[in-house]
Design a protein around this nucleic acid. Structure first.
Lengths: 61, 61
DNA sequence: CAGCCTATTTATAATTT
DNA sequence: TAAATTATAAATAGGCT
């Protein structure tokens, strides 16, 4: 999306991949929360990074 | 986001809420898949609409 | 490294068909 | 009303600090 258009395939460079993971993970969580609020939906999101670390989101009920 | 900026709170109008749900649900699934591919992560996403309908995504392993 | 910057791509709210 | 359009808000890739 930004300075250059990218292809959707695994990012080879480890550092770049971790940076993108952090940025996009935050964006995904934000979008999940917005959907839950705007549309009164229940949303659960679980992510395991390539290093096995867990991240999760759930819209509270 | 688009023609006008909106506030993130429950959309009162039922029809408008359903339209937004369909559009944003697709966007969220797309972003989830992109994160999984770009960053080699495992992602699971589960959504229950306000009418109780289930939608889910999982990055295949 | 964790954040900031910003040009550009992408998502999407309102409108039109 | 569902689908397409389009103007604009939002996300973000690469660079910099």
């Amino acid at each position: 999306m930004a300075r250059e258009k990218i292809q959707i395939r695994k990012i080879d460079n480890t550092t770049a991949r971790q940076v993108t993971f952090s940025k996009r993970r935050r964006g995904l969580f934000k979008k999940a929360e917005e959907l839950a609020i705007l549309c009164d939906a229940q949303v659960g999101l679980i992510i395991f990074s390539s290093t096995g670390k867990l991240f999760e989101y759930s819209s509270t009920r």
